[in-house]
Structures are given as C-alpha cells and as structure tokens.
C-alpha cells in the first residue's frame, strides 16, 4: 500500500531513530490496534500489554518495514502479539479446546442458555476472534485478513465460516434461519 508523502517523512524520521516521529505513529495507529486487540483478548489490561509489545517490537524492527503504509505491518505484529498473549494466559483453555477438537466433541448450548453476542465471542478461539475482528470490525477483505494472519485464503474462508456458525449456534440465531 502506498504512503502519503507526509507519513513517508514521519517514517523516514522514525528510521533515523527519531522518537517523536515514532510517537506520532503510535498516536496515529494506536487506538485502532488497541481496540482490535481488545476484541481478541476480551480484556483491556491484556490488550494494552499486547499493544505495548507491538510497538516496542515495531520500534526495534523498523528495518523490516518496506516502503509502504505501516498500518498492515503493525496490524500483523499486533495480531501475533494478541494471539500469543491469549495463548499464554489461557493455556488450560487452549488445551481443552484442542482435546475437544480431537475427540470431535462439541459443547452444546441449550436453547435456554442462549448467549448474547459478547458472551458468544468469548467462546471463540483467539484465532477465530482475530479473523472476525479484522473482517467484520476493520472491514478487511477475506484475502487481506488471510494475508495479515498468514494463512491461505481458503483456510480463512473456512475459519470465518466456522466462527460465524459457532456464533449463530451460541446465540440461537441459527434457529431463526432454519
């Protein structure tokens, strides 16, 4: 993605180690990244930790940013940080999810226990939430979402479809379609 010339100058200053320029980048992209991380991590403090790490890594790795808008590059780092933060903090939950998948098990939700969307999002995996956040919150195409999360497009289509089906089940919306 091409950069506007003003942003290009800010990035050049950042490449030269100008901390003020870097803080301008933090101001420009920080809020959107923090909001996306919070959608994935479901926790403000964890999201702030992930975004702190994102920007510290970005500061150190400016050499790997090509001559392009830093937005997608920062988003990719933020998504990796968010997912790995979630995995670190929810190892046990991740383990049970994995065993559930291996055994073909599926947690059934009774009609009485229908959840609202926020609770249903809590039940998705971090990878599914990252896909949902980028596609439905940041309005990225399936192709761009797949590129940012470094998975094939078909995998992303399948992940989004699975996430959506799960959200419908959990909220009872699938019955309305039947």
């Amino acid at each position: 993605m091409l950069m506007d010339p003003t942003l290009g100058r800010v990035i050049e200053r950042w490449r030269d180690g100008d901390r003020d320029a870097f803080e301008e980048v933090v101001d420009r992209y920080g809020l959107q990244l923090l909001r996306t991380a919070r959608l994935i991590l479901r926790d403000q403090a964890l999201a702030e930790d992930a975004i702190q790490e994102t920007f510290l890594k970005a500061w150190q790795r400016i050499g790997s940013l090509r001559d392009e808008d830093p937005g997608p590059w920062l988003t990719r780092i933020a998504m990796n940080e968010s997912i790995s933060t979630y995995r670190r903090r929810h190892r046990f939950q991740a383990l049970t999810e994995r065993f559930g998948r291996l055994g073909g098990g599926k947690v059934e939700v009774s009609t009485e226990a229908r959840l609202d969307l926020a609770q249903a999002l809590d039940r998705l995996t971090a990878e599914q939430r990252a896909a949902v956040a980028l596609h439905y919150y940041q309005d990225l195409s399936v192709e761009d979402t797949a590129r940012l999360l470094k998975v094939p497009v078909d995998t992303m289509k399948s992940r989004l479809k699975t996430a959506l089906r799960r959200l419908r089940e959990l909220t009872g919306s699938d019955e309305a379609l039947a």
Binding site: R19, F22, E23, V26, D27, G30, L31, L34, R35, T36, R38, L39, Q44, A47, E48, I51, Q52, F55, L56, W59, L117, A118, V132, A133, Y136, Y137, D139, L164, L167
Partner: peptide, 28 residues
C-alpha cells in the same frame, strides 16, 4: 448485527490511554 456489535464494543475504548503511551515511551 455482528459488525455493529464489534464496533460498539470497540468504541468502549474511547482513547489511547496516556499510561500506555508512557509505557511505550519508556520502553524505547
């Protein structure tokens, strides 16, 4: 609905916290 929900949930974070900006500044 999902899209609207995500936007309203995201907008609960109204601004980039000053303390987080400070932590990043300290880190660099």
């Amino acid at each position: 609905n999902l899209r609207e929900h995500l936007h309203s949930e995201a907008e609960e974070t109204r601004e980039f916290p000053r303390r987080l900006r400070g932590r990043i500044r300290d880190g660099i």
